[in-house]
Design a protein around this nucleic acid. Sequence first.
DNA 1: ATGTCTTTGTGAACGCGTGCACAAAGATGA
DNA 2: TCATCTTTGTGCACGCGTTCACAAAGACAT
Lengths: 256, 256
Amino acid sequence: MATGRTHRPATRSRGIPEATVARLPLYLRALTGLSERSVPTVSSEELAAAAGVNSAKLRKDFSYLGSYGTRGVGYDVEYLVYQISRELGLTQDWPVVIVGIGNLGAALANYGGFASRGFRVAALIDADPAMAGTPVAGIAVQHSDELEKIISDNGVSIGVISTPAGAAQQVCDRLVAAGVTSILNFAPTVLSVPDGVDVRKVDLSIELQILAFHEQRKAGEEAAGNNAEQADAPPLRATPASRKGPDGDVPAVMPA
Amino acid sequence: MATGRTHRPATRSRGIPEATVARLPLYLRALTGLSERSVPTVSSEELAAAAGVNSAKLRKDFSYLGSYGTRGVGYDVEYLVYQISRELGLTQDWPVVIVGIGNLGAALANYGGFASRGFRVAALIDADPAMAGTPVAGIAVQHSDELEKIISDNGVSIGVISTPAGAAQQVCDRLVAAGVTSILNFAPTVLSVPDGVDVRKVDLSIELQILAFHEQRKAGEEAAGNNAEQADAPPLRATPASRKGPDGDVPAVMPA
DNA sequence: ATGTCTTTGTGAACGCGTGCACAAAGATGA
DNA sequence: TCATCTTTGTGCACGCGTTCACAAAGACAT
Ligand SMILES: NC(=O)c1ccc[n+]([C@@H]2O[C@H](COP(=O)([O-])OP(=O)(O)OC[C@H]3O[C@@H](n4cnc5c(N)ncnc54)[C@H](O)[C@@H]3O)[C@@H](O)[C@H]2O)c1
Ligand SMILES: NC(=O)c1ccc[n+]([C@@H]2O[C@H](COP(=O)([O-])OP(=O)(O)OC[C@H]3O[C@@H](n4cnc5c(N)ncnc54)[C@H](O)[C@@H]3O)[C@@H](O)[C@H]2O)c1
């Protein structure tokens, strides 16, 4: 998960649990697919399968939105698409700025899935003067000096940070001061923001480390043989490139 | 959050809660920073602040790893770095392949933070014959036909998918069949994999939609004023910039 | 109309994660 | 050696999220 909001006393927003909110986009995507194939209705079972979740969970999630299903039939696809879109705030336009147009920033700018759901790239901002004016994904990059003006002029409330880690907090502060209240952070740093500002982070490195943990565990289990009492975790394959020297690389510094 | 493993009966891996595992990389990053500044020890309070979490939570997390602290003093930075690295499986080398070298794939390949923690880009794979041989981030892109051989030869167990959504499941199947047991998926699709294979997803679109939800809610609260009995669960309803045309864009199809 | 059959919506139980609060551990100084 | 002071490690309670299981709702056929 590259997710994680910063702070927030678990204030269940308007009665809709945070976990449910995080799944609504998933349902919406599955529903959009059905809609394109002109499927009129879906059962909770079918939709749940498409979204990769439990059907009971899906029904409970939808129950927070209201009673939009028909017993014995299922859910009307178009209607549900609309209801979820409205709930997520996608019936309006969200201008977004991307700050830090390097490798990642440029990829994000080129990302088509951006505009598809009400998100519009209002501006690309970079601190490098050499980049100012350069078109990326059809949009001319603007210099950081313009940041406040851009935010203000476009009524931007969502900012994406893809600068190096060292610049992230500073950029964040400027964004917030200029009026941005939601930030998607790709830089590997913990951002501190005032109350009322939401931060979500996407951290590739963390994701890989979590995978490595489970990978190691799988390999270890296999090595340990199946003397475990329960066959819950299957044997799986051989450890990857693991000639993990016999703990030979313990740092010299020991605790006490 | 762009996170979410697929399936898995909440099998608490080796006694370490999943939530804790997800935070270990965060602690590790904070500790690495301290280590570079040659700080010998940290208290749970200081480290927690650096990692952006609660100190009690941090102490509880560490308690799952063992008793590595010294009461009255704190934790030895170097020692803790080693212990967490070992726990996460970062003391060994993890060869990784990236499949789909487009905008995003190329950015990922160029990402420096990759190699820093034991992850090594073993190969870049793309289906486009025109890309074969082209160097990206100093590595020659290889054609999809070689996928199985590459996985096998390098003992790759972690794969990154950054192909278009339509190709993701197919690529996933091939990776898994070739021996990959952990996948980081950037394509906006639900991947289905056999038991024993971990999938984590990073989904920009979902992150933005979650931010939009809260953004809409904030706007609604502000618009509603403070006439509510408690500022916790506001009336809402008053959509923000919603000139929600007299429901003019409600789909024609209604439920019942 | 009435019965059957499908599927929703939800009450209830359970487990995980979080945070409080404090006893125990150990360092440090006299 | 003993007292004091800091900080860890954890028991405990609480709330959120998940899942089960089923009653109620409605479609559809007869
Ligand atoms: N590339 C990836 O796949 C990847 C993956 C995960 C995380 N990240 C993170 O995303 C960030 C960007 O990665 P990248 O590979 O694109 O780096 P990059 O060096 O290619 O791009 C960074 C860009 O930010 C600009 N910049 C620097 N300081 C700035 C400031 N104060 N204001 C505005 N712009 C500024 C630079 O001019 C540069 O164009 C890094 O923090 C990196 O750790 C990247
Ligand atoms: N660019 C972004 O910032 C971004 C953000 C979020 C998600 N994504 C997702 O990441 C994926 C890649 O995005 P992108 O912008 O890099 O797209 P892209 O079109 O630039 O790149 C896709 C690459 O995948 C290759 N490819 C296609 N089918 C393949 C196959 N079967 N096997 C191997 N390679 C194959 C193509 O040749 C191409 O080089 C998409 O699913 C996109 O939705 C991208």
